[in-house]
Design a protein around this nucleic acid. Structure first.
Length: 373
DNA sequence: GTATGCTTTCGGC
DNA sequence: TTACGGCCGAAAGCATAC
């Protein structure tokens, strides 16, 4: 108890850019502000084939959602003057970079998550004070609006888990502060599904124990949880339900995987046609991977005509050396996959690499440098 | 048993 | 009535190691 009083609580911010891609488009053309704006990924099949990436809140009012087929969104907006735009990743990435640079300047520790989210540990600069934390969050919102004309939603809490749930609780343009004293009552009534680490299966398993809310999870016997979910997940669930999360805010390293996927011109089972695409994907992936980095895992995925996805992957003992080896492995996996999938046609084809390792020469040099210092 | 690593599928944006 | 991207990391299921 004494320790608790002497320890300064952490102050962590989760910043989430509101309906990011569509908001950037609104910014670029303020005339569309009050109309439904739907940012789309058009596939290579022409017309309105493709899916919705992001929609602004005006469009959401009409039921438009991320991942929805474009044609379906159009139906919902047929009586309204709506704006459909193709994704412009180069632009969004630039805006994201600018904002991330601003955010970075406000943090003791900074962790970017994807293109439109970040965690900031600001404990030191606010002296563990939540009123100052709230002020800082408010200042950050103003600054981002001033510099980049973008609104965001911020959650403030004693750790990443609570900060993220807080940010999610009020959108768009929200600011939600959950001080350490408020954590338990804030979480109590929320579904366990809000916790990072609880997917559909875990949710179902918890439901079987009669647990649906964090309150129920928090009061459930922890040894019982461990006997059902194992030590790691059991302890995690217990702590998370109480808003306890010690994971540090820290800069992420490189991505753990790099993948590309493409929609075929038409559904097929023709290996030659598919390998032509795999060749392009492989080259594209290698271009995107930094020099001196190699990988041990290759995965091929096929989205079938009914949109179900099937994947095959292989992890090698030694790094994959070149494009030829990569294509060979991918081809073997694809053949393997098609031997199992004997009926359905393939609609989309994807390739992924993972299990990255520094190349030997480089690593040794780095280790040596460390040692002589 | 639990931890760890690999494979496959899921889900958020 | 149907309709459907691209990317990432998380989740889940398993096999094997400890």
């Amino acid at each position: 108890m004494l320790v608790g009083k002497l320890t300064i609580p952490r102050v962590v911010l989760h910043v989430d850019f509101d309906y990011f891609f569509a908001q950037v488009e609104e910014r670029e053309n303020s005339a569309i502000r009050n109309q439904p704006v739907v940012v789309c990924v058009y596939s290579g099949r022409g017309g309105d084939h493709g899916a919705v990436s992001t929609a602004n809140y005006v469009a959401r009012k009409y039921g438009v959602r991320s991942g929805m087929p474009i044609i379906y969104a159009k139906k919902r907006l047929k009586n309204v003057e709506a704006v459909f735009l193709p994704v412009n990743r180069v632009l969004y990435d630039k805006v994201s970079e600018n904002i991330m640079n601003v955010l970075c300047g406000y943090a003791d520790n900074f962790e970017q998550v994807g293109v439109d989210e970040a965690f900031l540990d600001v404990t030191k600069r606010v002296g563990g004070n939540y009123e100052r934390g709230q002020k800082l969050a408010s200042e950050i919102k103003k600054r981002i609006l001033a510099e980049e004309k973008i609104t965001c939603s911020i959650g403030v809490g004693p750790n990443k888990l609570v900060a993220k749930i807080a940010a999610n609780s009020q959108k768009p343009n929200g600011l939600t502060v959950v001080s350490p004293a408020e954590v338990q009552s804030f979480l109590a009534s929320l579904s366990v599904r809000e916790l990072v680490g609880v997917g559909r299966k875990t949710e179902d398993a918890l439901k079987k124990l009669g647990i649906e809310t964090n309150r129920q999870l928090a009061t459930y016997d922890v040894t019982e949880l461990i006997s059902v979910f194992g030590k790691t997940l059991g302890m995690y669930l217990h702590n998370a339900s109480l808003g306890v999360d010690e994971s540090p805010v820290e800069q992420r390293g490189r991505a753990e995987s790099v993948s590309r996927i493409v929609t075929l011109k038409e559904n097929t089972r023709d290996l030659t046609v598919m390998m032509r695409e795999v060749d392009k994907l492989a080259k594209d992936i290698l271009k995107a991977v930094e020099q001196g980095l190699s990988f041990r895992s290759i995965s091929i995925s096929a989205v079938m005509e009914d949109l179900s996805m099937v994947t095959r992957s292989k992890t090698f003992q030694r790094p994959v050396e070149n494009l030829e080896d990569m294509k060979k492995a991918a081809g073997d996996l694809l053949v393997q996959l098609l031997r199992k999938e004997t009926e359905r046609l393939v609609r989309r084809i994807g390739l992924k690499i993972s299990s990255f390792i520094e190349e030997k020469g480089q690593k040794r040099l780095k280790d040596f440098d460390m040692r002589v210092q």
